[in-house]
Amino acid sequence: MGIAVGVNESLDYSAIKTATSTTENSSADLQNNFLTLLVTQLKNQDPTNPMDNSQLTTQLAQINTLSGIEKLNTTLGSISGQINSGQSLQASALIGHGVMVNGSQILVGSGDTTPFGVSLDQASTATQATITDASGKIVKTIELGGLSAGVHTFAWDGTTTDGTTAADGKYQVSLSASNASGPLVSQPLNYALVTGVTNDASGAVLDLGTLGKTTLANVRQII
């Protein structure tokens, strides 16, 4: 690249930024271009009208900042890769284990039922679980009492309101909670079995079979 700076001309720093940003990709390239222009300027400057030192200092500081940001990005990228690897190892240990995730499903089969749970942001003085069948009919209402803030897991014994055993199949649970201030937000949780682990750009992904996929961040409790 040819550079010509005449006597009494001063470096156009904004032009340097524009030119290098469109043709170069790293702070090293920017430094090389800047130093080339600087040497040319020093060779041709008018002794009676020397370069503005404050402008030079500012530009050098900006270049050093860019270099530091590039190094920081490289370091963060390396740390992110290590975190993803660690997540994958942690997630692989969950294969074959049950987890509680957001959802309202309860499965009943051969007298066994999958757990259900609730997540509360605030402590409740009264909490109730209502279990319905596929048609929406209420088959059981369970009083859970007062609960502290956080995640709680429960087991339904599979009996209906009239004392009979619920038929095998899929049921839904809804939660309601309240305290002295009034109704509370209650997030229902359902059980899922981790059958496998894969990776994508965001890290480890848990395969929950028919319930789909989720990340470690969405696991509320490990059973």
Rank of each mutant, 00 (worst) to 15 (best):
Y191G: 02
N64L: 10
G6P: 03
Y191Q: 09
N179A: 07
Q105T: 13
S174E: 09
K170C: 05
A19V: 02
Q45P: 09
T57N: 13
K43I: 10
Q122H: 12
N33D: 06
G196L: 10
G109M: 10
Q122N: 11
S21V: 09
E9M: 09
L175F: 00
T23W: 08
L72I: 15
H97E: 08
L94P: 07
L175E: 01
R220S: 10
K140I: 00
T114Q: 07
G117S: 04
G98C: 04
T127Y: 03
D133V: 13
G103I: 14
A201L: 13
L72P: 09
S135M: 03
Y13M: 12
G145F: 05
D121L: 14
G81P: 09
D46P: 07
V39W: 08
A61R: 13
A19Y: 10
T74W: 00
N64G: 07
F34A: 09
A4T: 09
L56I: 13
V5H: 02
A91W: 02
G68V: 12
P188C: 04
A19S: 12
T215C: 05
N84K: 11
A15E: 10
A91G: 07
L60Y: 08
F154N: 03
N25I: 11
S27N: 07
D112P: 02
D162E: 03
L144E: 12
N73E: 14
K137I: 14
T164K: 05
I223T: 14
L94F: 06
V7D: 13
D46W: 11
G117R: 00
G209Q: 07
Q82C: 06
K43P: 00
V139N: 03
K43G: 08
Q62D: 14
F154C: 07
W156P: 01
G117I: 01
S14W: 12
I223P: 15
P183R: 10
I63R: 10
T23P: 01
